[in-house]
């Protein structure tokens, strides 16, 4: 059972950062994953008083505060218009509305969970993580970094000409994905992000221009194979490596076809 000795609702990011330098202290996001741990936390750092639960839109970007909930992502109109509803699709299967009312984007991204739909989704966009000390880091880089004691302030999504499709296979509707896929055409580049392999999501770009001559059944299938070959797949209780590889080919192909309006 998780135990916490002290609780501090911080007044500033600096205060949060300073507290977070101590290894026994922890930032609590939605606390959904943290709660299931058996950690003994000295000080729980709560950033819910820092107004980081907003989605701000400018002409250039979306700035999503770390404490924004998954439910906010799901219901935010402009984000969903921008992503053709892919953001909604990526989070709507996660347990239930109540869960998504607490779970935060900051917590999801910080955790870099293998099963993360959120990470899979945002990797297919031109996304960045704004860290309190570390500055702005591309999400693809952040996803590979080891967890440190810095603090996620915002997730930034640069607005580019975008088309985007999210798909996942789940044994039951509210389960973790067996495999999750997001394919986008972002500023002319085709990107496929594949998560729950079961390792954390990775994005593969169409460097060989497989799709540059148009989307059709053949190129979509080829891109599915291309992406799948670049990634490694493993087994866990939800599926074997073999099945995941198969799913990756199928879902990437389908997402590409859907992207092409087919």
């Amino acid at each position: 059972m998780l135990t916490i000795n002290e609780y501090v609702k911080v007044k500033s990011l600096e205060e949060a950062y300073e507290l977070n330098q101590k290894k026994t202290n922890r930032i609590i996001g939605g606390m959904l994953w943290l709660k299931m741990s058996t950690l003994r936390v000295q000080t729980a750092i709560d950033m819910s008083g820092l107004s980081l639960d907003n989605i701000e839109e400018t002409d250039e970007e979306f700035k999503i505060g770390a404490m924004t909930t998954l439910r906010q992502l799901e219901t935010n109109e402009s984000l969903n218009n921008y992503t053709n509803g892919a953001i909604r699709e990526s989070v709507r299967h996660i347990v239930g509305v109540q869960f998504r009312n607490s779970a935060t984007i900051g917590g999801s991204i910080y955790g870099r969970y293998g099963f993360s739909d959120v990470l899979t989704m945002f990797l297919a966009l031109d996304s960045y993580v704004e860290l309190y000390k570390g500055g702005i880091v591309p999400l693809s880089e952040f996803a590979k970094m080891k967890a440190d004691r810095d603090i996620i302030v915002n997730i930034i999504v640069k607005k580019k000409p975008l088309k985007c499709v999210y798909m996942s296979e789940r044994i039951s509707k509210t389960d973790f994905p067996v495999l999750a896929v997001c394919v986008s055409e972002c500023d002319g580049k085709f990107i496929a992000s594949v998560g729950a392999r079961p390792a954390r999501a990775e994005a593969i770009t169409d460097c060989e221009g497989i799709l540059s001559n148009g989307i059709n059944a053949e190129s979509a299938e080829k891109f599915g194979k291309y992406v799948t070959e670049k990634l490694n797949f493993n087994s866990n209780m939800r599926g074997s490596a073999e099945y995941r590889e198969h799913l990756s080919k199928v879902l990437v192909k389908r997402a590409v076809m859907a992207l092409g309006g087919k």
Partner: peptide, 13 residues
């Protein structure tokens, strides 16, 4: 006003 899971929220929050 929002439905949440009270098993996953600190009373402190």
């Amino acid at each position: 006003g929002k439905p949440v899971l009270s098993c996953s929220v600190l009373a402190a929050r």
